[in-house]
């Protein structure tokens, strides 16, 4: 009788609970596994091939050898600078426009915002990155070429614009949420003191929502940093520091995307590319930490 009841409980509770538990813990294990593999493969550059982290981060000499013997140079500074430059420029372009749209859809015309802008943002988010890259390649690149009379349209500027369009919906929707959640007593207070709408927005609304807006910007930045194919289609993939915004360069993700297939497993080249992937992983973790710090600040303020 006891065993039959246990069997019964097995079917009624323990089986389902067990499966759910295994799947839940699997997520944790998967995350740890990804982290460990990245760390293991990415650190080979520094352990097996004896390069210093300083060389990797601050040297622009990039000549890794595609052999297990190693002996090349793995300075990834050009790629790092390329990533930072394109992302920073993308933010510069995107943030003002995103904020305008976010304010519009929440405070200026919530009806239009709900009916038109919000669905538009959702569609924008869903467009595959290669489609952005492809339109960038066939529209933006020729345009830059003719407008600025440069040899190749593929450039830092093109990459930044493509990225700016891609992160625009992310920043818009997250900051719209932040603006929406600003306590209406602040807004009423501002109007009560005789502010115009614009004065209310830039003196009260934006400061009150600043933490959420920063979070939105960091999320956008994270998306831009990790984006690979769209950027690689328009950045030009030239291994040199850009001397102007119209010059081609290269970035971390493009280098990994285009070179990994040709790099021999176990070789120095391969290890250096893994180190770049590890760097991307660490950067994405840093972004998470920043967002946590921001939300902690929000909690403290409230």
């Amino acid at each position: 009788m006891d065993t039959s009841r246990q069997q019964n409980m097995f079917r009624r509770e323990y089986l389902g609970k067990g499966i759910a538990t295994v799947c839940g813990l699997f997520l944790i294990v998967l995350t740890i596994a990804i982290g460990c593999f990245l760390l293991g493969k990415g650190s080979l550059t520094f352990t097996q091939f004896d390069h210093s982290i300083t060389e990797f981060l601050f040297s622009s000499q990039w000549k890794p050898s595609d052999t297990e013997a190693g002996g090349g140079q793995v300075g990834a500074l050009i790629f790092i600078v390329g990533s930072i430059l394109t992302c920073a420029l993308a933010l510069l372009i995107s943030v003002p426009f995103s904020l305008c749209t976010a304010i519009f859809m929440t405070k200026i015309s919530p009806q239009l915002g709900e009916k038109i802008i919000r669905p538009a943002v959702e569609i924008f988010v869903g467009i595959p990155s290669v489609v952005y890259g492809w339109v960038g390649l066939v529209v933006l690149v020729p345009l830059i070429k003719t407008v600025f009379h440069v040899q190749h349209g593929q450039s830092v500027l093109a990459a930044a614009i493509v990225l700016a369009v891609m992160i625009y919906p992310t920043i818009t929707s997250v900051s719209a949420d932040a603006i929406r959640s600003v306590n209406s007593k602040y807004i009423e207070g501002a109007y009560g003191l005789g502010s115009t709408r614009w004065q209310m927005i830039y003196k009260v609304l934006l400061p009150a929502a600043s933490t959420g807006i920063l979070t939105a910007i960091v999320l956008g930045l994270a998306r831009a940093f990790g984006e690979a194919l769209a950027v690689s289609m328009v950045i030009g993939k030239m291994r040199a520091f850009p001397d102007s915004l119209l010059a081609p360069t290269n970035n971390l993700t493009s280098a990994i995307a285009s070179d990994m297939g040709g790099a021999m497993d176990g070789g120095e080249f391969n290890a250096a590319l893994w180190s770049m992937a590890l760097l991307l992983f660490i950067i994405s973790l840093v972004f998470i930490l920043i967002i946590h710090a921001l939300s902690g600040r929000k909690g403290a303020a409230a």
């Binding site: 995350t31 990790g226 990994m260 994405s284």
Partner: peptide
């Protein structure tokens, strides 16, 4: 933390992990 990390992974990094494993 695991979910946040997974959802913020650049997809190229996931691709590399998949390639390796």
């Amino acid at each position: 933390i695991a979910i946040e990390t997974l959802s913020s992974l650049p997809s190229i990094v996931v691709g590399l992990f998949g390639y390796l494993v």
